[in-house]
Design a protein around this nucleic acid. Structure first.
Lengths: 246, 246
DNA sequence: ATGGCGCTTTAACATTTGTTAGTGCAGTCT
DNA sequence: AGACTGCACTAACAAATGTTAAAGCGCCAT
């Protein structure tokens, strides 16, 4: 990946169907970021209930949206670089869930004041910001479907396929797989199962020659089988050509 | 419920924390509705994949957001009167799921052209429209959490508590329960289980004296036990006082 | 009124998943 | 080197849920 003119924000909406930001708009987005911060793994970036006056763009690494309930941690969404992780706080103000870093992370901040100004002066860009929160909602719906429909095997396959595709949109996937720092416990928290059962599932994926998950990396061995196992149809991601890595 | 000056749209955002629409804005929203249509049960109001140029406000009755997958129907969200059911199509254009009526329904339509005009002239109202789509996303997240966290018993209790609260926001609940036309099959589709197992769960709720579901109505017998069983915390609904029916 | 139809209910059995209780392994700190 | 720690992994058993197969029940149309 060569050096970009927009080093912090260039992945925002990258690869998406309706991503048609002008040079001017891309400059505006880059200019939104007033501040940058790095975190190590398992850092709580934002706490449920916080009333915030700024929003957070994920620049490097992975974060999870987490709801703690009944002494257990539930991951309700994962984010990859380029995602605005709490743009919704601009309209909602109070957060209904926490944001936690997974692995080392770099985030950028923008103020709601800046966003308000942008709403007045950049109607098209405003709509693209809205679009990006609607993408989140579309992914949420797919997760709901996946949780209702699939057994733990399928859920993991679907998760892997989705993250692979999303990383590909922003230029962070490779044909053989992708970096992925989640532990089996965190995978379990994302799939609504237990770490013990997730371990069975991970083993089964490996034994079936579909994918290997280890040492912070997912290696996909059989892409078609993966897509089949997860019933993965990427159309809900609204990618440029709705193509899967090719 | 007395006659409102805004007979079609008066339930839009009613009861919500950040619902502060001026008289002028309420008039604008009412004026959005160019057309009204009624459907009987099980009518497909919108089909996945449709490219639409208008958006749909639910005026009376219930609709479900549905994703068909693997020969099975999965309900990923339910809507009550006052909800804009496909406002997201304004920015997303192509629908990633279908909308199906449950019971008799009245909907109103507005054009995306009208919404575009509104984006220019009504910045506060635009933000409230955005807010309403973010509410959907917050509900999606809670559903994800519920599906990851709860057994079928808890999921049904949570669903009932949520719908009861949402109907209360818009003046359609009563202290003893609420009208609710879902079949056990549809409840199962909403909770990610089978109709047979849903039947066990419905019976258990009844036998435990928590709630009765029959003849198109939910009767809540023990509100505290219901909330307890579903681990229901209404804060994600961003209601006016975050209070549960009192 | 009667037959059909969709919804509810039950039973018996299979499968998946959760729970409890561990072992092993690799990195890291002292 | 040795102890500690987090993560991966396994086994045995318990509980929840899915599957298949029917039967009953109420509503509606002819």
């Amino acid at each position: 990946m060569s050096v970009s003119a927009y080093p912090l924000s260039h992945r925002f909406l990258l690869g998406r169907a309706r991503h048609r930001l002008s040079e001017h708009e891309r400059g505006v987005v880059e200019g939104l970021i007033t501040d940058v911060e790095r975190f190590t793994s398992a850092h709580v970036v934002l706490e449920r209930g916080d009333v915030v006056s700024r929003s957070t763009l994920l620049i490097e690494g992975f974060v999870a949206r987490v709801i703690n309930e009944g002494g257990r941690r539930h991951i309700v969404a994962l984010h990859v670089p380029g995602d605005f992780v709490d743009l919704h706080a601009f309209a909602l103000k109070r957060l209904d869930h926490s944001i936690v870093s997974i692995g080392p992370v770099m985030v950028g901040y923008t103020t709601h004041k800046k966003l308000e100004g942008l709403m007045q002066t950049e109607p098209h860009l405003s709509r693209m910001l809205w679009f990006s929160t609607l993408l989140d909602a579309a992914m949420h719906r797919e997760w709901i479907m996946k949780l209702e429909h699939l057994s733990a095997d399928g859920r993991l396959a679907h998760l892997i396929a989705e993250i692979w595709q999303r990383l590909d949109f922003v230029g962070l996937a490779d044909p053989g797989g992708f970096p992925f720092p989640l532990t089996q416990q965190e995978l379990a928290d994302s799939c609504g199962t237990t770490a013990i059962h997730m371990n069975r599932v991970v083993r089964k994926l490996r034994e079936n020659g579909i994918a290997e998950i280890s040492r912070g990396r997912v290696t996909v061995l059989d892409k078609d089988a993966l897509i089949e196992a997860g019933g993965f149809d990427p159309s809900y991601l609204y990618g440029k050509g709705d193509l899967m890595l090719d």
